[in-house]
Simulated assay, not measured.
Amino acid sequence: MDANSKHYAPVGDLTIFEAATLKESLVRLLENDGLVCLDLAKTQRIDTAAIQLMWAARKSGRLLAMNISKELENKLTQLGFAEPLSE
């Protein structure tokens, strides 16, 4: 990653209950230039509300999602997302 990158590593669940916090964090990180690294290694449950927010952030072209679990990959496929979460 370059000097302008930002690292965000949420811990625990990313569900509708954490969606507002996730959105705030992603918006704040994407306000500045550079790559946003979303490290999902310490997340447990991820629901469609969080997936929608991550997918919206992906549209910036500056989101790098890391440590995506097999469970999340399967969920994305089931929901019809053919492209990877990261750019």
Rank of each mutant, 00 (worst) to 15 (best):
D39C: 07
L64A: 12
L29C: 08
Q78N: 07
I51L: 14
E83A: 11
S60N: 14
T77N: 10
M66D: 05
N32Y: 08
A3V: 13
K70T: 12
A65S: 12
L30G: 04
H7W: 15
A41F: 00
P10S: 03
V27W: 03
Q44S: 11
L79P: 03
T15W: 05
L14V: 02
E87F: 09
H7N: 11
K23N: 09
R28M: 06
T43N: 01
G80R: 08
D47A: 10
R58G: 03
V11M: 07
S69A: 09
E87W: 06
R62M: 01
L38A: 01
W55Q: 09
A41K: 12
A50S: 12
V36S: 05
R45K: 13
T21E: 10
L40A: 02
M66R: 12
T15Y: 07
P84N: 11
E31W: 05
A41W: 00
R58C: 02
A65E: 02
K59Y: 00
T21S: 11
A82V: 10
S5M: 11
P84Q: 07
G80K: 05
K42G: 03
L76V: 09
P10V: 00
R28H: 06
A19S: 15
R62F: 02
M66Y: 02
A82P: 01
G34H: 11
L35Q: 15
A56V: 11
D47I: 08
Q52G: 05
L26R: 01
S69R: 08
N74Q: 13
I51Q: 04
A20I: 08
G80V: 06
L30V: 10
G34F: 13
D47L: 09
N67M: 03
S60L: 12
M66C: 09
G12K: 07
Q52K: 10
S5D: 15
L29E: 10
D39S: 07
M66G: 04
S25P: 00
D33G: 14
Q44T: 12
A19N: 00
L53G: 02
Q44W: 04
L35W: 12
P10H: 00
K70F: 07
E24N: 10
F81P: 02
L40I: 02
G34R: 13
A9P: 00
A65P: 00
V11Y: 05
A57Q: 04
Q78L: 15
K6A: 09
V11F: 05
N4T: 15
K23R: 13
I16L: 14
L30D: 01
E87T: 10
P84G: 10
G61W: 09
L35R: 15
S60E: 14
A50W: 07
N74V: 04
G80T: 07
R58N: 04
G34K: 13
N74M: 09
L72F: 07
A19R: 12
Q78T: 11
L53R: 05
N4A: 15
G12C: 06
P10R: 00
K59I: 04
R45L: 11
N32T: 14
K6E: 06
